[in-house]
Simulated assay, not measured.
Amino acid sequence: MRRTATALVLAAAVALALAGCAGGSSPSATIGGSPEVIPATPSPTISLAPATAASCDGVFVTVQFGILRAADVNLCAKTTEPITAAAALDKVGVSVAGTQKYGDQVVCRVNGVPSASKPIDVPGHDPYTETCASMPAAYAYWAVWVRDSPTGTWDYAASSITTQQLKPGQTLGLKFTTGTDTAPPQG
């Protein structure tokens, strides 16, 4: 009997834990006579669409931070009409800053990185702190790429993020590039 009660309590705890992972409304359970409320998983403010270019109903956006060690972004900017690269980034919640001298013609920061106060360590170079005053260093910059289809060839963007037009089915890629790594984004 004791073994059965222990198994039931364990099964209830597992079910409770799984219910908390499911999101939605806040589930509650009674354990030992007192109700315990498990907070719901907060809903994101942006729609987290498919994580692959092939399943995106719009413009797929990939941001690869490389040595900056931030979490990569792989989201779908849902659209049925052509949009600018800046609009696609905005739709998926990615912020971009240009430079003082060149404005949006050059991408200097993505989601606040590289930091204005923390030096970037690029192998073979002295530590570099990005000020966004002018052109970033040739060995530490954001490259902007465009791909015509999920399996197509990557090309550098032809214009600034505010004028670069993208059609549904295309991919926008931002990749932090070092002088030794000039390859297009992965995926």
Score class of each variant (00 low, 15 high):
K118N: 11
P44G: 13
Q105D: 12
D121P: 01
P123C: 06
Y156P: 10
G124F: 08
L75N: 05
T6F: 11
P27L: 15
V9Q: 07
V107S: 01
A116S: 15
G124T: 07
G23C: 13
V92N: 03
V14M: 03
A137K: 06
G173C: 07
V73H: 02
R69Q: 14
T180W: 05
P119S: 02
T180H: 05
S149C: 03
P82A: 01
T129Q: 06
Y128H: 11
S47T: 09
D126A: 13
S55D: 09
A29M: 13
A19L: 10
P150L: 02
S28T: 10
P123A: 09
K101I: 09
R3L: 15
P42L: 09
A138V: 12
K175L: 08
T129C: 01
L10K: 09
I67R: 11
T6Q: 15
R147K: 09
G103C: 14
G173T: 09
Q164K: 14
T180S: 08
V59P: 04
H125Q: 11
K101R: 15
I31H: 00
T177Y: 00
V94Q: 00
R3H: 15
Y141H: 06
A12S: 09
D104G: 08
A183E: 08
T171V: 06
K101P: 05
L166S: 00
F176D: 04
Q64R: 00
Y139K: 07
A40I: 03
G179S: 01
Y102H: 14
K101S: 10
D181L: 11
R3N: 15
